[in-house]
Design a binder for these strands. Structure first.
Lengths: 240, 240
DNA sequence: AAAACGCCTTGATCTCGGTCAAGGGGCGAA
DNA sequence: TTCGCCCCTTGACCGAGATCAAGGCGTTTT
């Protein structure tokens, strides 16, 4: 049992939070009814469409957010324009680098996205009053670090074919974590350009490797975005 | 002013801690004299020579540590043996993933290393009693995440020449952060194989690019390990 | 309906970095 | 001292993925 998880009567908490994923699996899970009510006074739900810039590298941080729906991509660029996506965030991930004055990465909406925004000072005050909240955010940060290091292996040591398989595997397990069986169905939240920037490849190579996986019946791709994985284990075997 | 940083009389604190870098710049900086004394009862200084395995991926965590001297490499391997170094730790970095039951990465001594080991339960108890300590560890974790993401750009988008320059730049700024001037002198703490595994290259490519940088007078390499950077800014221009 | 645009796929060719191979040089063992 | 080992360097060649180029398809504009 997680002692920090409060047993909250739905009737005591803000309406918007009642069905919120972040309250169960995200950072708000460690807040009690009064904290949640206080926090909800300063939060604001905002919708962004695909491509919108949510935060720019080296710019001041003015707010944090929880991802409620959609996928956010975190990226960095070299001076000559070469781009690398360094992370993807899914609901109910926390967005933002706690306590830092400026963004270390650029955040963009990869798909249409809903965010629950919190002003920087409001969250920081709450974190100072409630160590359990910092603890929860520490857990997410550690997960992100694990993910980043796992992806470093993909970037540094895998072939193009393995990279594309690894990407599909990542998205399949994040977006459709349902069916205990191996079958997964989802829409790709990223364009070919995004996938290339995530994998350190060109869009041509991504396209060719996707075609190869399709020819080998590892994935069924209908249209440009819709993907079906008949056998997740078979895909995993392609990941290197 | 950092309110959590206690003003400690040296005579009140354990002898071993008095000249310790971790007490000033590392995690112990947030502890007061009594906490430091309590913690010091369970710490143990250990020396490992280059190549020693400090912790293995997927094995249970039995202790945490502060790096007191030397360089520790964190790595991951694929089933077929391909290896990727996913991080380097220098004094006075904290070593270990707080609260996790098993290691996410393998930790090895890259050079000869001194560690100040703390048993897992002792540190976890202290973290629960002192939120400032978790806060300090959160800061280090966030720095590691920044480093990992920065390195993802290097792995995914830089050329071999830029990768090798970036590696030298990283080591130069970590190992010899003295002289405000651009000149840096140090010994490489990693073998060519390690460098290759850190950069996602082969040792032959690393060797060729080092020779090229030497031919271009960007670095002066004496013997195999000793490196002199006459002009750090010139090296940085090679980093992409 | 036609044109124009964005996004993707496929083919042809090129190139950077990998692979294979030979040899140098330092260091410990005998 | 000499041998053998390990680590590194250099050269020759090769191939995975980049680059260059053409065209398909769906959506928006006119």
């Amino acid at each position: 049992m997680d002692a920090s998880r409060k047993d909250i009567h739905n009737s005591d908490i803000p309406v918007l939070c009642q069905s919120c994923e972040a309250r169960h699996k995200g950072m708000c899970g460690v807040l009690d009814a009064s904290e949640l009510t206080a926090l909800a006074r300063s939060t604001r739900m905002v919708r962004h469409e695909a491509g919108a810039e949510l935060a720019a590298e080296s710019m001041p941080v003015e707010s944090y957010a929880n991802v409620m729906r959609g996928v956010v991509k975190l990226s960095k660029v070299l001076e000559d324009g070469r781009q690398q996506i360094v992370g993807l965030q899914f609901a109910p991930d926390f967005l933002g680098r706690l306590f830092s004055k400026e963004n270390a990465v650029t955040a963009e909406a990869a798909s249409d996205v809903d965010l629950c925004r919190v002003p920087k000072p409001a969250l920081e005050r709450l974190v100072q009053e409630n160590p359990a909240l910092e603890h929860r955010l520490m857990e997410q940060t550690l997960r992100e670090l694990d993910d980043a290091r796992e992806w470093m292996v993909t970037l540094g040591r895998k072939t193009a074919a393995e990279k594309v398989a690894s990407f599909l595997y990542l998205i399949a397990t994040q977006l459709d974590p349902t069916a205990a069986g191996g079958r997964r169905v989802f829409d790709l939240p990223l364009t070919r350009t995004d996938i290339a920037d995530f994998l350190g490849l060109t869009i041509e190579t991504v396209s060719r490797q996707l075609s190869k996986l399709r020819a080998d019946r590892v994935v069924i791709i209908s249209g440009i975005r819709h993907v079906e994985i008949p056998d997740l284990a078979a895909l995993k075997r392609r990941c290197g």
